[in-house]
Design a protein around this nucleic acid. Structure first.
Length: 337
DNA sequence: AACTAGGATCCAA
DNA sequence: TTGGATCCTAGTT
């Protein structure tokens, strides 16, 4: 018996709550949610229509919600295209480093030198964080989709994965077939008008989203050149995280599940430890985990029925088992992580 | 309805 | 050969 309605991606879009730019993609949730200096790029920052945060993602554990945290939203001017925003970030960082008083000279009335320092530092921090967040978002998607960060490196399959992913994140209608047999290079050569011609409804959105990815490499280059050692370290760290994360060989399901479990700030809403020491975990959102696995393996028809069958294959192999007290959706790694 | 269990088959690496 | 996807029946919660 299967799980009706779960065979086709998009059949239950309301359950697919991944968002590439969610704060929880950042490794340290404590810093993110409790540090008042931390400012997240909102969807509008990226030139994308706002989604209700709770509908997009529910940060688990701390109960905080971005809508309840005005400081986490609207970090950048609205109405800018992603490229413009990123360009501004790069440009202003460049200005501020070439002449460290750039921001202060344009700022209204810094009363003291100390005041200048106070104003400059947060600006650079915010700029760096914006770039860092963009890179981390791309990193998250790269890990999940098992694709390169640079669209120029994508083959047709990678393009389809990216499209599938983007459809889900932004709840776009299915557009994959409109971009068949296109490589990443093909995509990058296309103009916004080309995108619109292929998809009147969301071509501009796809174009903008691709722009963010294309800007990733450029951002790293620019920041490496322009930022001071502290900024450079931050970006380098983000980038090294991106680069080092490319899994080149096929991933096993148990490894994938462990990956999700080891990033509770990202995925605890759909899979979490019950007892990490004993390796016991619970799948909180079976459909979501199945979709993540389907995206990872490029199997759009994946569902929990099939995923759980694969998990059960691990029983014989001694990789995963049911805990002594069997509960629904609760499994146990035989060798705890 | 959703989940669990396991047999059978197919396919790609 | 192996790991996983897919389809299936049957039982349980």
């Amino acid at each position: 018996m299967g799980s009706p309605g779960c065979d086709r991606i998009g059949s239950t879009p309301q359950q697919f709550h991944i968002f590439i730019g969610h704060p929880c993609t950042t490794p340290d949730p404590e810093r993110i949610w409790h540090d008042p200096a931390d400012v997240k790029p909102s969807r509008s920052l990226l030139g994308l229509p706002e989604l209700g945060w709770p509908d997009v993602f529910q940060p688990c554990g701390d109960g905080l919600d971005a809508e309840d945290q005005p400081c986490l939203q609207g970090a950048a001017p609205h109405g800018l295209s992603p490229t413009k925003v990123l360009d501004e970030v790069v440009y202003s960082s460049s200005s501020s480093s070439s002449s460290s008083s750039s921001s202060s000279s344009s700022s209204s009335t810094p009363s003291t030198l100390d005041g200048q320092a106070e104003e400059e530092c947060p600006l650079e921090q915010v700029q760096m964080m914006v770039v860092g967040e963009v890179l981390k978002d791309i990193d998250t998607a790269c890990k999940l989709l098992n694709i390169e960060a640079d669209p120029l490196d994508w083959d047709c399959v990678h393009v389809q994965k990216w499209l599938l992913w983007t459809e889900h994140i932004y709840r776009l209608p299915q557009v994959c077939q409109m971009f068949q047999a296109l490589t990443g290079k093909d995509l990058c050569c296309m103009s916004e008008e080309d995108f619109r011609q292929r998809s009147l409804q969301c071509g501009d959105m796809l174009y903008a989203h691709l722009d963010i990815w294309k800007s990733g490499t450029m951002l790293v280059d620019s920041f490496s050149r322009c930022m001071g050692s502290q900024g450079r370290m931050g970006v380098d760290n983000a980038w090294s995280e991106v680069v080092s994360s490319y899994p080149s060989q096929p991933i096993h399901l148990w490894q994938f599940l462990r990956e999700l479990l080891l990033k509770p700030n990202n995925y605890s809403f759909c899979i979490r430890w019950i007892n990490k020491e004993k390796g016991i975990f619970k799948i909180e959102d079976s459909a979501h985990v199945a979709r993540l696995w389907g995206i990872r393996k490029n199997r759009p028809a994946m569902n929990y029925d099939k995923l759980s069958r694969s998990i059960r294959q691990y029983y014989k192999k001694g990789i995963i088992r049911k805990p002594e007290v069997s509960k629904r959706l609760v499994y146990q790694f035989v060798k705890p992580v």
